[in-house]
Design a protein around this nucleic acid. Structure first.
Length: 433
DNA sequence: TCTGGGGTCCTAGGACCC
DNA sequence: TCTGGGGTCCTAGGACCC
């Protein structure tokens, strides 16, 4: 049996490259793509990176700079990116049937048994460019972590011309000595700091570090697996079942703050509709639903994080039912007087479903009509009562993750502790201008 | 002073990824 | 004025059971 081998194919500045497909004249020029509501930069070409534009830079802060430096700026178009992504992935899968689609712009292909891996990598790269028009980098190695490392070099090195093969352990060591621990896939800032405190500065230092028990204790099982992957021992096999999500979330930041329950409800109804559609498309039903909304963390105002979740007695993928529960949860925790800046829903705890959907209320158009009609009554009239109990007000990993700012003392989840807004907002009944 | 023990399930918290 | 939107996994500790 031949040695295991993985190729990581990663699209260059993917969203920007998608936009460039339709604007070829932007080749070689700085381009960025903005998030929802044109909030911040979420993709930059190398030219834009070279200008110093950072991932997540708020657009209003760099707008002037972009104008001055002729940076082309695009609002995001996820429908387009998803479509282009599928074309890229299909092209890869045609060439390498054993491929794990890892994210919208990345895939791991099984390169085991391929004789001239470097040549095959170049072939993939050119065929994707030719068929879809998207430039990619290819990193080849015996483990995923090393393939990731190879990919990083492939994108940076001019000599590599987009493809790097780290099959040879000698080259692995060379690459690892060049790579600071922060660059290892799976090592974030918290772990990097701890590793540096242990005197581990490069990927190579980590590879040759002797005390595995210590690594396991400090960085858990995953940390040790990463170390083993650096040593050439594959711990993360290809996973072909990435289609099936375990959680489905839909959330948005609002352009303007939302103050009324009714406006919040309309958003939540839309999010549920989108999430439920995804749920059904993977033949799942959920038994847990969460609703959340938060105030704007980028201000000095008192912060509030509304969060409610509930378990459903019976699994469902029915939009109506989910909306009704979501509305109950929302009403239960809605606080008048707060300016909500972001809201969302999360469906989880899935059961597989064979029967599907005949009864399921899915067409988004119909739902839009309903939300536009602006009434909970309409929803209620669609089906009988629901006697679902409300969960206690709580916080979960999601709340924590939403924004670290919420860890600060100004963040409260207990209604009794809510700061008083006084006259400032008490008369407000419309959503803010 | 002494104060069962073992097992399972669930959740919050922490870390990481794109 | 204006600050993204998704995901996954692991572990400790509490609740609960016998």
């Amino acid at each position: 049996m031949s040695e295991k081998s993985f190729a990581l194919i990663d699209c260059n500045s993917f969203y920007c490259s998608c936009e460039r497909l339709f604007r070829p004249e932007l080749e070689g020029k700085p381009v960025i793509v903005l998030s929802n509501n044109d909030g911040c930069a979420i993709a930059r070409t190398t030219e834009a990176k070279a200008l110093g534009i950072k991932m997540g830079d708020p657009y209003f802060k760099i707008k002037r700079f972009c104008e001055k430096n002729n940076v082309s700026v695009f609002s995001c178009n996820f429908a387009l990116y998803t479509n282009i992504s599928q074309r890229v992935m299909n092209t890869i899968i045609r060439e390498c049937p054993k491929t794990q689609v890892y994210s919208v712009d990345e895939a791991f292909a099984d390169f085991s048994g391929i004789k001239d891996k470097l040549k095959h990598g170049h072939h993939l790269k050119s065929i994707i460019l030719e068929h879809v028009g998207i430039p990619v980098g290819v990193g080849i190695a015996p483990t995923k972590v090393l393939a990731k490392l190879a990919n990083g070099i492939a994108k940076k090195s001019i000599k590599a011309n987009g493809v790097v093969d780290l099959t040879d352990p000698k080259w692995q060591d060379v690459a690892m000595k060049m790579s600071p621990v922060e660059n290892i896939w799976g090592v974030g800032s918290a772990s990097a700091l701890k590793l540096r405190n242990l005197g581990i500065k490069t990927a190579y230092d980590f590879k040759i570090f002797k005390d595995e028990k210590l690594i396991q204790r400090i960085f858990t099982k995953v940390g040790l697996q990463i170390k083993h992957e650096l040593m050439g021992i594959s711990c993360f096999p290809l996973d072909f079942d990435v289609e099936s999500k375990k959680e489905i979330m839909c959330s948005r930041t609002f352009g303007k703050s939302v103050i009324t329950l009714q406006t919040l409800k309309e958003s939540i109804a839309t999010y549920i509709s989108d999430a439920a559609e995804k749920l059904r498309s993977q033949n799942s039903m959920c038994t847990e639903i969460a609703v959340f909304a938060r105030t704007n963390p980028h201000t000095d105002s008192p912060q509030f994080y509304l969060y409610q979740r509930d378990k459903l007695n019976n699994p469902t993928g029915d939009t109506r039912k989910l909306i009704r529960v979501a509305f109950e949860l929302l009403e239960e925790s809605f606080r008048d007087g707060y300016e909500y800046k972001k809201a969302g829903v999360k469906l989880s705890n899935f059961h597989s479903s064979d029967e599907l959907q005949i009864d399921f209320f899915s067409p988004t158009d119909t739902l839009r009509d309903i939300t536009l009609m602006n009434t909970m009554d309409k929803i209620n009239s669609l089906e009988g009562d629901s006697s679902i109990k409300l969960a206690a007000c709580g916080v979960d990993d999601h709340a924590w993750r939403m924004n670290r700012a919420f860890k600060s003392p100004r963040y409260t989840t207990s209604w009794d502790e809510l700061p008083s807004f006084g006259d400032k907002v008490s008369n407000r009944s419309e959503d803010s201008k």
